Simulated assay, not measured.
Amino acid sequence: MNHSETVKRYPNPSKDGIFTISLLEDIQEVNIIVADLTGRIILNRTDRKFKSNVVIDLSNQSSGIYIINISANGEHIASKRAIRI
């Protein structure tokens, strides 16, 4: 299965820095790591979700491009760009 198709991100770009990640399959544990383009990790968290949405709040970050790395049940499933304008 192509895991990147199981993860949707919206809105993108975001004016307020709030992004929603929609998980389209049942996932027991999701790990979210957000980094800026220099590689500095600005968010690292683990949530327990079951076919749900995860809200990522980058409202306290400056405008720019961020990379959201998503792992589910211990396996990397997607890397998504998030644009904060």
Rank of each mutant, 00 (worst) to 15 (best):
S71T: 05
D57K: 03
V7N: 01
I32L: 12
R84T: 07
L37R: 05
I27H: 06
L37Q: 11
E29G: 02
D36G: 09
F50C: 09
I85A: 00
I21N: 05
Y66N: 01
S79K: 13
V55C: 05
I83D: 11
Q61E: 15
R45L: 12
K51W: 01
I27Y: 14
K51P: 01
I68V: 14
G17R: 03
F50M: 11
K49Y: 02
V30C: 12
I33S: 08
S22I: 03
F19E: 07
I42Y: 04
H3N: 15
I85N: 10
I77Y: 05
I56D: 08
N73I: 01
I83E: 13
R40A: 12
N60R: 10
I77V: 15
N44Y: 05
I56C: 07
Q61M: 14
E75H: 05
R40H: 06
G17S: 10
I32D: 09
A78Y: 02
P13H: 09
I77P: 00
N31G: 04
G39C: 03
Q61P: 01
I85W: 00
G17M: 07
K49N: 08
I65A: 13
S79N: 11
Y66G: 03
M1Y: 07
P13S: 12
K15M: 09
K51M: 12
S59H: 06
N44P: 01
N53K: 10
S14K: 03
Q61D: 06
I56W: 02
Q61V: 02
K8M: 14
S62N: 13
M1E: 13
A35I: 06
